[in-house]
């Protein structure tokens, strides 16, 4: 119960980072934090259902739910792809305008460089 409140707090911290920080790299940090918190939430909820790891050797019973773990594998790999693409776009913006500050970039794009 308290773990879920802490995970909600982590999600809100990531969201606050995206909305209120002006540096582009800080916004990408916020994306990563949100991704991390949702993955931890799924694995935590799935592990409430049992007590041993889902490797069915001889005599293992009462395993945890393996379906959320299989889904989160895909989610983690896609998360790193999202970060890499976002960083490539941020790099291009830096090379074109000279700054990472989102308000400066907006002003420069609006005034035609």
């Amino acid at each position: 119960m308290i773990e879920r409140i802490l995970l909600l707090g982590m999600f809100l911290i990531g969201f606050w980072g995206i909305v209120s920080r002006k540096n582009l790299i800080k916004k990408i940090f916020g994306l990563n934090i949100i991704n991390n918190s949702v993955v931890i939430l799924f694995v935590l909820e799935g592990s409430r259902a049992g007590s041993s790891a889902p490797i069915m050797e001889q005599g293992i019973s009462n395993i945890v739910d393996p379906v959320p773990q299989a889904l989160m594998l895909t989610a983690i790999v896609i998360g790193v792809c999202i970060s890499a693409l976002a960083l490539a776009l941020a790099f291009r913006l830096y090379k074109a305008t000279g700054t990472y500050n989102i308000q400066e970039i907006k002003r420069k794009v609006h005034n035609g460089f």
């Binding site: 119960m1 879920r4 409140i5 259902a49 049992g50 889902p54 395993i63 945890v64 739910d65 379906v67």
Partner: peptide, 20 residues
């Protein structure tokens, strides 16, 4: 998000039972 993170219904076990 608050109702999503705070809900307390039991995790459905049919998938785990079938897979086991």
């Amino acid at each position: 998000l608050l109702p999503l993170f705070l809900e307390n219904s039991p995790w459905p076990l049919s998938a785990r039972n079938y897979l086991e």
